[in-house]
Design a protein around this nucleic acid. Structure first.
Lengths: 256, 256
DNA sequence: GAGTGGTCTAGACCACATC
DNA sequence: ATGTGGTCTAGACCACTCA
């Protein structure tokens, strides 16, 4: 009977820590400011470093912090809104909203790509696809890496190998694609983790959380191309529709 | 000279583990099957449990695994595609795609909500907003929890307090909203972590990764309502556009 | 009560950036 | 060379589910 214990909420330490840190970030830190290092923070809060890291990880996931090995932990700026899908459908590369062609190659499609193109369609596993790599830069930072798959059958006018590997070759494929009449498109967004190559392009470690945007481009003849774009989940807010420049603060969402 | 060390790739153990497990899942396990427990898996691979958990965590983030305390780790089914935003704009609740009204209340808006509604607009901080809670169920499982903010000024026809708290009250607010002429809407998607209340509704632990879909509804008079919906990131693939039922496999995306 | 995943600790070493 | 975050270990205990 002695200890009444009135609901001492068995809230995990790292969760409570996250809340405390979150409030401290709002009040005592400016964007870009560096936090004390992990060992000191852990000591200051009286927890093990692993526990402190669990809290930091969450805050980084929410886009509040940015951690860089060998440098330190800094307060992240608000997420940038990147437009993904305006009202008008258009081929990749038609509007110049930050996409940079990197390279292109010709390969055989994997099962996953085949499925996206439509397994039962006109494209067979032994038909080559052009694979175009692009990156997207906004406000001076790389926010997305894309792989665009264009079945060779979609762009019959494209010579087998003409431009030297590099941006020029990527541009050639895009140019050819834009000759076609776009009939519609299809988009989905899901959470993923960055593959090694994407991570490098995005200046993150492999496994970093990314938003994977998969787009299918249709002509009357069927699926003409498929794009798989991976956006940095920590720094990006994907916007749809026409007025995409909303300011959203980091303040806690309201409870009912 | 002795040890040539030909590129022994300092790949982290957990990353390699993840790859190995991923392949094992493709080949040796069926959806719904339970894996050996963490202690045994760790022993089998000769790593500490924490390292094994780091790999499992990634796989869960990618929607390949499902872990439940007290139960075990099971192979997750492919992500379900949930339609979020058809071509036609419409008020929440107009089409019955799985949303269930839960409750409604009247509160004062937080700074964050005010900003979404438009700080410079007709809505002031001392004007109450109706807060409607809804949940979305697809294929028998809860996939999303939503908070809809409707400034009282948007629905002047709504009596102050009429229906008893509960679904009926939520429905009353939605019904009133649908009287207005929708002029446009605005959507953004970002990564977040589930708050305690959302987590409970989604049958996940607090902090679980979620996709936060923020929608603003416009009338000619300005922003009439704002919706913040949190989708389970592990089980959901958000689809936009009209043909949203694409099958996407878990196979590794192709490299260039 | 037995078995599961979730949390936490106190250390160690490594990879990287910077001076 | 120093200091940072990233990885890893070998334990411990807790919260939960289910028979």
């Amino acid at each position: 009977m002695g200890t009444t214990q009135l609901e001492t909420a068995p809230e995990p330490k790292y969760w409570h820590l996250k809340t405390v840190l979150s409030e401290a970030l709002d009040q005592d830190f400016a964007v870009g400011e560096v936090l004390p290092n992990e060992r000191e923070l852990a000591a200051r809060f009286g927890v093990a470093r692993a526990t402190l890291r669990q809290a930091l990880e969450q805050l980084e996931l929410e886009g509040r912090l940015q951690r860089r090995r060998g440098v330190g932990t800094t307060v992240a700026p608000p997420r940038v809104g990147v437009a993904v899908g305006s009202a008008q459908h258009s081929w990749p590369g038609e509007s110049v909203d930050g996409w940079e062609p990197v390279d292109a190659a010709e390969t055989l499609p994997t099962a996953a790509v085949l499925k996206l193109l439509g397994t039962g369609g006109a494209f067979a596993a032994d038909q080559p696809v052009h694979t175009v790599r692009r990156t997207r830069v906004t406000h001076g930072q790389a926010v997305a890496a894309e792989l665009l798959y264009v079945p060779a059958a979609s762009v019959p006018g494209l010579p087998a190998i003409e431009a030297p590997a590099g941006p020029a070759r990527a541009r050639a494929v895009l140019r050819e694609l834009q000759r076609l009449v776009l009939d519609g498109q299809d988009r989905s967004v899901e959470l993923g983790s960055a593959r090694a190559d994407d991570a490098k392009e995005l200046d993150r470690l492999p496994g970093a959380p990314v938003l994977v945007v998969t787009t299918r481009y249709f002509t009357t003849a069927g699926t003409a191309a498929v794009s798989v774009a991976t956006y940095r989940a920590d720094t990006c807010r994907l916007t749809f529709g026409d007025s995409g420049n909303v300011e959203i603060t980091h303040e806690p969402r309201v409870a009912s």
